[in-house]
Write a protein that binds this DNA or RNA. Structure first.
Length: 626
DNA sequence: ATCCCCACTTAGTAAAGGACTC
DNA sequence: GAGTCCTTTACTAAGTGGGGAT
């Protein structure tokens, strides 16, 4: 919008205000087709019904951040299918019930008691075979602790050293490059691929890619149409002309023998003798010793991911449009090495060359390559215990700590901005309120069609919220329903301030479901504003801050200093769970979940039956004694 | 102002490891 | 000793945010 248009709008608003009218969305500059570039998705979106005005009702200032979601049944969007019933059951089980927690506690108590008993009775423990195992376990545990302590002692105490000048990440860096996955090993001759019922020999390249698919045959991915289509298209590219002429329909492909071969191989691996397993472990250990460490400024640092990602089929999450595409094998010729000029430059694998060797000490990565599916950069970096990661982490929490002293003023400011005459300020203020109150992510814009359709705060669309003037006895309720990072569903019903509610209505006026809710806002604008309020402040800091506050509050609330260790651990886990709820952290239940739960339930019912029988028996004895 | 690239953090999933139980 | 369960680690996809080019 040009400045004079802006002024005109402001005048209009003023005029309306003096006449007692509320500004319309258009007057404030909210039109669906305005400034913000959009990633519109082709989706059926029903027009949202206009909400009726609601009575004034203020929600508590800053309630605990998760209380209204505590008992919410969360679900992942991909679970919205005919199997809903069983999946709901799975989800319910996911959040542990109080009973389970108690069981957990009892179990832990018993465990601690047992351990105590072993310690108190060394003479008994010394004799039998079983006791010896316990001792061995104890010894192993002690060894582990000792090793950790030693590691801790050897640790680079970088925080006691002077910081480097701005932007300089290291002064000396030497490493061994990257570890490349082993070459493709073809299937033995007896393992065949069948096309249209007939065995068909494949070229090496085509066979390798077929193997990737065969490997995943028991995974849900291979049933998804997008995955199958992408795989098939990319697979055909790897085929010889002749193969391509024959193989034209994925439905006619039979990978079962390949799948069985992999399954048997895994099984055989599982059944290996201890010695064989040990051998493999030692071989892996050697690889880690060579490639897993680097020398940085006179300190040995562990590398987080020294292995080049092996080829395979891309496993994008949610409805990723590129799922199933072939992730190609990375060659040394694709890899850029970064190290010190005066270090021993890593050798590329025999007969190969690096793409480039550079000496850039303003970045933290040791090697990088561009991945073919999304065209994004992949890096080899140090692990989380390293100086570089630790320092960054420290800084992150420092910024969050700084926010603590400014949060009151910042909250005050955005509340004032809810009444701003400028649409952009209003949108910014409401978005910030959500980010602060609900720990939403910023919501950076993404290229349409390149990734799954997920959003964060700034990229919320009209279709992602519903307004209820009144719901379940609460007023001004906003219902959020969208897919966030990793296509994890965010579903929440939140009572908001009346002015937020009114603003949302305004933002939604004259818009379609697939229009941006905050059409005047993007993360760049928001972050610029935040930076002006406090140096280093960005949208993501609020998540760190509120997660930390929640953890601290919950720990204080739940922990009793006189409690024993298992009780304290339980409190800690509960506090962490509160943070997980706030941040909408979710994991899919493990594949074995149904069975495990069934086992537990049968055990529980057996136990309660036994208890009942016991009580009956006692009762009888008591009666007899009377 | 917008786009795009780059560097880096965050977080879910799968595999590995290890303790416990029957 | 096998099976199960739980924890830890490895892997890598998916975000955020800065900065330069257009």
């Amino acid at each position: 919008m040009r400045p004079e248009e802006n002024r005109n709008e402001e005048r209009k608003i003023k005029k309306n205000k003096s006449e007692g009218k509320k500004p319309s969305a258009e007057e404030l500059g909210s039109r669906a087709d305005t400034s913000k570039s959009k990633n519109k998705k082709q989706k059926e979106t029903g027009k949202k019904k206009k909400e009726k005005s609601a009575k004034e009702q203020e929600e508590p200032e800053y309630p605990d951040f998760h209380s209204d979601r505590k008992n919410r049944v969360k679900k992942r969007a991909r679970e919205e299918d005919p199997q809903e019933e069983t999946l709901v059951a799975r989800r319910k089980k996911k959040v542990k019930t109080e009973t389970e927690e108690r069981a957990e506690k009892t179990k832990k108590d018993v465990k601690v008691k047992k351990e105590k008993k072993v310690k108190e009775e060394p003479q008994i423990a010394a004799g039998g075979k079983r006791k010896k195992t316990k001792e061995e376990i104890e010894a192993a545990r002690a060894l582990k602790i000792k090793k950790k302590e030693e590691e801790e002692q050897q640790r680079w105490r970088w925080w006691e050293e002077e910081k480097y000048e701005d932007g300089i990440k290291w002064k000396f860096l030497e490493h061994k490059g990257a570890y490349f996955p082993p070459e493709y090993e073809p299937f033995p001759d007896h393992v065949k691929f069948y096309y249209d019922g007939k065995p068909m020999a494949l070229s090496l390249a085509a066979e390798e890619v077929a193997g990737f698919f065969a490997h995943m045959l028991d995974h849900e991915y291979t049933t998804k149409e997008v995955f199958r289509n992408n795989f098939f298209t990319d697979w055909r590219k790897e085929m010889t002309l002749k193969e391509r002429m024959i193989i034209t329909d994925l439905e006619k492909c039979n990978f079962n023998e390949m799948f069985e071969f992999y399954k048997n191989k895994m099984e055989a691996k599982r059944n290996m003798s201890k010695e064989e397993k040990q051998k493999i472990k030692e071989a892996n250990q050697k690889i880690v010793e060579v490639f897993g460490f680097c020398l940085m400024d006179q300190h040995q640092e562990r590398i987080g991911n020294f292995k080049i990602e092996p080829p395979g089929l891309f496993r994008g999450r949610g409805d990723h449009p590129k799922q199933g595409k072939l992730k190609k094998r990375i060659q040394p010729e694709d890899v850029i090495i970064n190290c010190s000029r005066d270090s021993k430059i890593p050798e590329p694998p025999l007969g190969h060359k690096w793409k480039e060797v550079r000496f850039d000490n303003t970045v933290t990565w040791l090697a990088s390559w561009t991945e073919n599916v999304q065209g994004s950069c992949k890096y080899i970096m140090l692990n989380a215990n390293s100086k570089l990661k630790g320092e960054k982490d420290w800084e992150k929490y420092e910024v969050a700590r700084n926010l603590k002293s400014r949060i009151a003023a910042i909250r005050e400011k955005y509340k004032q901005d809810w009444k701003s005459k400028q649409m952009v300020a209003r949108q910014r203020a409401v978005a910030l309120y959500f980010i602060d109150k609900l720990a939403l992510r910023a919501g950076t814009e993404k290229e349409e069609g390149e990734t799954a359709d997920t959003v964060g705060c700034c990229s919320l669309r009209v279709e992602h919220i519903k307004l209820y003037p009144e719901l379940d006895g609460q007023q001004h309720v906003v219902e959020f329903d969208f897919l966030g990072k990793d296509s994890i569903r965010y579903y929440n019903k939140v009572p908001v301030k009346k002015s937020v509610f009114k603003n949302l209505k305004l933002f939604m006026e004259n818009k379609q479901g697939d229009d941006d809710l905050f059409d005047r806002l993007n993360t760049s604008l928001l972050n610029k504003h935040l930076n002006s309020l406090m140096p280093g402040l960005t949208a993501k800091v609020f998540r760190t801050f509120n997660a930390s506050v929640t953890l601290q509050q919950q720990l204080k609330e739940l922990t009793d200093s006189s409690a024993n260790m298992p009780e304290k651990i339980l409190s800690y886990n509960r506090a962490n769970r509160a943070v997980a709820v706030l941040c909408n952290h979710q994991r899919a239940p493990p594949k074995t979940f149904e069975q495990s739960m069934a086992n537990l339930q049968s055990k529980a019912s057996q136990k309660s039956q036994a208890n009942y029988d016991n009580r009956k028996q006692c009762h009888r004895i008591c009666i007899n004694k009377m």
